[in-house]
């Protein structure tokens, strides 16, 4: 019982298949890896089976698939322009991965892939890496104009460049931390309040009556968490688009 109430337990990484540790690095296939592949399989299976009929008038599932497509596509178009559509597969993959990971995490006893900082950080690095790589390939050194705001007095320029540089470098950090912290905190909060229920019920009849309070809290938090799951995936996507827009159009 006790371990189930432990709010940290849900974030634990368990080795499912140990692959040994070549060079002292543990590369075991873990529950996290299983969920990652589960996400890929779920997304791929859903999107392909929902669109298998290629109906002109979409059915229920095809509507959902098209909705996801149009949602991400319109986000890309509105923030990065039609030129940004060349990053659409990447942005869509990021969105659907984060969204599905967040939503799967809401299933009881499941594991939330995005509640691990290393995962969100890796995704953020993919985004920023794409921005930097594409920026330099497309614009060469002109990409560095991103850090030089136009129309700034010369004596202020070094400071402005420094600020722009810091803000650029803080992007992957904020991008990964935001998602990670939201998922972590939300899941801990739900677990803590759920733990209160168990504790109060164990405390006797008065506790059972009092448990209604944390129960209602858990219900409300669960609804909020579903919103946060979607919202964080959306925020991650929008910020990705905004950063990619910088790679497409450097210079202010």
């Amino acid at each position: 019982m006790a371990t189930e109430i432990d709010p940290i337990h849900q974030f634990e990484i368990k080795n499912l298949v140990s692959l040994g540790s070549p060079g002292g690095v543990d590369l075991a296939f873990t529950n996290s890896a299983a969920f990652m592949f589960g996400i890929v399989a779920l997304v791929f299976f859903f999107l392909t089976s929902a669109t298998s009929s290629r109906a002109l008038v979409p059915g229920r599932f095809q509507s959902v698939a098209e909705l996801a497509y149009e949602f991400v596509a319109s986000t890309v178009r509105s923030t990065a322009g039609t030129e940004g559509m060349k990053f659409f597969p990447l942005v869509f993959s990021l969105f659907i991965f984060v969204f599905t990971a967040n939503m799967l995490g809401m299933v009881p006893f499941s594991f939330t892939v995005t509640s691990h900082l290393i995962v969100t950080a890796a995704l953020a690095v993919v985004v920023i890496g794409t921005v930097i790589l594409y920026g330099f390939i497309r614009h060469g050194t002109h990409f560095l104009h991103l850090f030089v705001p136009s129309g700034v007095p010369a004596f202020l320029l070094p400071f402005m460049v420094l600020i722009e540089l810091i803000s650029f470098l803080s992007r992957p950090i904020s991008l990964s931390l935001r998602l990670f912290a939201n998922m972590l905190a939300g899941h801990i909060a739900m677990k803590v309040f759920a733990g209160f229920i168990v504790m109060m019920i164990a405390g006797g009849a008065a506790g059972v009556a009092g448990a209604i309070l944390p129960l209602s809290m858990v219900v409300a938090l669960t609804a909020l968490e579903f919103l946060v799951c979607f919202l964080q995936a959306y925020v991650f996507t929008v910020l990705t688009c905004i950063y990619l827009n910088d790679a497409l159009h450097p210079g202010h």
Binding site: I13, V25, D26, L27, A28, F29, T30, S32, A33, M36, F37, I39, V40, V43, F44, L47, P89, L90, F92, S93, I96, F97, V113, H116, I118, V119, A122, L123, V126
Partner: peptide, 21 residues
């Protein structure tokens, strides 16, 4: 757990990207 997570994330995300695109 970082190396393992990064490895499997890389594999699964590349797989996802390929399947999607």
């Amino acid at each position: 757990t970082f190396p393992s997570q990064l490895l499997w994330l890389a594999i699964s995300f590349v797989l996802l990207y390929t399947l999607m695109s």
